[in-house]
Every structure is written in structure tokens, then in C-alpha cells.
Design a binder for these strands. Structure first.
Length: 217
DNA sequence: AAAACGGGGGC
DNA sequence: GCCCCAGTTTT
């Protein structure tokens, strides 16, 4: 029997806010601007969310626009975001992207996927997250959590994040797009872990075929 | 000492 | 499509 996605979303929708997934609650909590979403996403690369969120807070308290970040300078940015992983590379990237947004887009982060993709270090995941969290637009942002869980529950059968995005775009009812993203990221961070997920306390365990799960808690 | 943390870009 | 990349934290 195929997964009932409406029932799946409905059940998780009420539960997920209590999980306090760090970056999602962080961005929602401060009502992050598109530019803040962009920078926070760059910071989060290969870095745990509980490290990224405070670093983003420290940085945004001092500078949260292209102008102010450029005025602050690469060295100061690097100090503020430490100990986020790859902080020298990231502070350099923040300078590049701030420059480009200021020069090419008059300091306004584009609200268009193709424009966002022209920015250095911005791919489909980052671009779509800016659209979803920054502009509250209907988009699907597929990170490793969304990709893994979409396959684990048997809703799609895809090999990579891009394929998952396309499949979800076609298959997932549009009214679920944003909430599906948010709950799956939170769900993936706290319960539906890559290895040894917490199926015993999972609110949708009975709906889930646990595809590819060999061990669970 | 080794693994985990995830995405973008170059070829 | 495959391989490369970077630094901190956790085991």
C-alpha cells in the first residue's frame, strides 16, 4: 500500500515544533531576512546546526546586510563566525557574495531561482532555501534530510537531491511544499537520523516501510 | 587517530 | 557522474 502523504504530513505537523531543530527554529525565530537566510545557509555547510545558529546570531548582531558586512571586513567576519568549520573560506565567500549582491542587485537578494544560482557558492539547495525561508515562496529545498527521508518512507525513489526535488515538485501536493520541507529537516535532525533512527518514539513509524533502515532505536 | 558534520564546483 | 574541497567537534 502506498504511503498516505496527507496523513504523514498531518501527524508530523503538530509534533515538529517541539523538536527545536536549531537552524530552522533560529531562522523562523528571528524572522530572518532573505540575506540572513543566505548567509546562515553558507555558514551551515559541513557544520552542526547547534554551532551554526549562535555563530549566525553573533554575526548578525554586528552586521546583517551586504553593506555592513563589507564594511566589517573579512577578518572580523572570520573572528565572529569562529568556530564554524571552514571559517576562512566561508568569510571569504561572504565577502564575495555581499559584493555581488551589492553591485549586481543593488543590495537586494534576488527572489528568482535562476538569478540566485548565479551567485558564487549557491546551488539549488541554498537558492531554494532562500526562496522558502526568506521570501516564504512556494519552493522545495532538498537537503540530505529531505532526500533521505523521502526515500526512506517510500514516497519517491531517487538517486540524488536534484532528482528528489523534481519528483517532489511533480508529486507532492503544493499546499504541503513548505511544511513538508520544514518538518522533514527537523524530523531528520532529531528523530529520523541517517543511521539508527528513533523509530520507537516516531509518530509516523506505522506508516513507514523503513526502506534501507537496517537498525533502529 | 578517525569519523562526522553537506553542499557546491570542476572536470 | 565522480571526485575534490575545507576546519572543528565528537568518538
Amino acid at each position: 500500500m502506498a504511503l498516505d502523504i496527507n496523513e504523514f504530513v498531518k501527524r508530523l505537523k503538530d509534533a515538529y515544533k517541539a523538536w527545536n531543530a536549531p537552524v530552522i527554529t533560529f531562522m523562523a525565530g528571528i524572522g530572518a531576512t532573505p540575506f540572513e537566510v543566505l548567509i546562515a545557509t553558507l555558514l551551515s555547510l559541513r557544520t552542526k546546526d547547534e554551532v551554526t545558529a549562535p555563530a549566525a546570531r553573533r554575526l548578525f548582531a554586528v552586521a546583517n546586510t551586504p553593506e555592513t558586512l563589507l564594511a566589517l571586513g573579512e577578518e572580523e567576519v572570520a573572528k565572529l563566525i569562529y568556530p564554524v568549520g571552514f571559517y576562512p573560506t566561508k568569510s571569504k565567500r561572504i565577502m564575495e557574495i555581499s559584493t555581488m549582491i551589492l553591485d549586481k542587485y543593488n543590495g537586494v537578494v534576488p527572489d528568482d531561482l535562476d538569478e540566485l544560482l548565479t551567485l558564487p557558492g549557491v546551488g539549488r539547495k541554498t537558492a531554494n532555501l532562500v526562496l522558502v525561508e526568506g521570501y516564504q515562496m512556494e519552493a522545495i529545498c532538498v537537503d540530505t534530510h529531505v532526500h533521505r527521508i523521502s526515500n526512506r518512507i517510500g514516497y519517491v525513489k531517487t538517486k540524488n537531491a536534484d532528482q528528489t526535488e523534481m519528483a517532489l515538485r511533480k508529486k507532492l501536493p503544493k499546499k504541503h511544499w513548505i511544511i513538508y520541507n520544514e518538518i522533514l529537516v527537523a524530523f531528520g535532525q532529531v528523530l529520523c537520523r541517517p543511521i539508527s533512527p528513533f523509530c520507537s518514539t516516531c509518530p509516523v513509524a506505522d506508516l513507514c516501510p523503513k526502506i534501507g533502515v537496517t537498525k533502529h532505536r
